[in-house]
């Protein structure tokens, strides 16, 4: 029917296999350009040619965003059990710990950003897709409680394509309720809450704390949504619109406040914090 059908450009196009690729020379996952590692590092892991944002993991974000890269971790000892006795879960946890050097899929702690004391939480896609099980839910909840108690803004950066963690069954689903209910208390206390959505943030995380920021900032080109594009495509049996569920799509549909390139992320965040906390 359509002789000149457009080449599809939607979906999960840049599938970054490793957390951060090795080697002196790297290929951009999107445009295929050959990039010099040092140059890429200087560029905060953004392709100089096409602007593709490589996934960098939560520790790099701390370096980029917090003053002097400082972060005082809290509740780092919390670790997962296997309450459902779920196939392959224990092994999966071990592999993720080894791969990321993290104990679980989220870091929470105190930080200072642009001179503002904040409670900062970051999820990491490298750890079972940044999915939320009991530990992630509990730590995010503790971060919310701490922000409320200390009366400082809460900043949460997400990279949680995995949504609610399947391996902990219904308990993971309940973490959505738990975190959101505590955000209600934070809102009532009048404490600012800022979310930074990075590639990818989906399903149970997107449908709970990630979407509830007073201000929602997204990195360009991040996949953000409820249902994954493959499942939607299988359900509706049609091609998905260009750029479907990307940050720019969400901006157009009114779902995020700001898109900030990684090099501008800190500046944007500080401006937002400056708004909430005026210097005397």
């Amino acid at each position: 029917m359509f002789w000149f059908k457009k080449k599809k450009t939607y979906g999960l196009e840049p599938q970054q296999k490793k957390e951060l690729p090795d080697g002196v020379w790297l290929k951009c996952e999107r445009c295929g350009d050959i990039l010099y590692r040092k140059e890429l590092e200087r560029n905060l892991w953004v392709c100089g040619k096409c602007g593709y944002h490589f996934r960098i993991g939560c520790k790099k974000y701390i370096e980029i965003l917090s003053d002097d890269g400082k972060f005082e971790e809290l509740d780092g000892e919390l670790s997962s059990k296997d309450p459902m006795n779920f196939p392959q879960y224990v092994q999966k946890l071990k592999n993720s710990q080894k791969k990321t050097g993290l104990k679980e899929g989220v870091l929470i702690g105190d930080a200072t950003i642009g001179g503002h004391k904040v409670v900062f939480a970051l999820t990491d896609f490298g750890f079972i897709g940044g999915s939320m099980g009991s530990v992630v839910g509990e730590k995010v909840t503790r971060a919310i409680q701490r922000a409320k108690q200390e009366k400082v803004p809460l900043v949460i950066l997400t990279a949680s394509g995995g949504g609610a963690r399947m391996q902990e069954g219904i308990l993971s689903l309940m973490q959505m309720a738990k975190t959101s209910a505590h955000l209600a208390e934070l809102a009532k206390a009048g404490i600012p809450y800022i979310t930074i959505l990075t590639h990818p943030t989906m399903a149970g995380v997107m449908a709970s704390f990630a979407s509830l920021g007073d201000i929602i900032i997204a990195e360009p080109g991040a996949l953000l949504g409820f249902t994954g594009p493959r499942v939607i495509q299988q359900t509706i049996g049609e091609e998905l619109p260009d750029g479907f569920q990307r940050s720019e799509f969400l901006l157009k549909h009114g779902m995020v406040d700001i898109i900030a390139e990684r090099k501008n992320l800190r500046k944007t965040l500080v401006s937002v914090l400056d708004f909430f906390e005026e210097k005397k």
């Binding site: 000892e77 919390l78 670790s79 997962s80 059990k81 309450p83 099980g133 009991s134 530990v135 839910g137 509990e138 909840t141 902990e168 308990l171 309940m174 973490q175 309720a177 738990k178 209910a181 505590h182 209600a184 208390e185």
Partner: peptide
């Protein structure tokens, strides 16, 4: 809110 706070299984180590 407390009811949902209690949900979840994890350990402190």
């Amino acid at each position: 809110i407390e009811k949902f706070l209690k949900m979840g299984v994890y350990e402190n180590r």
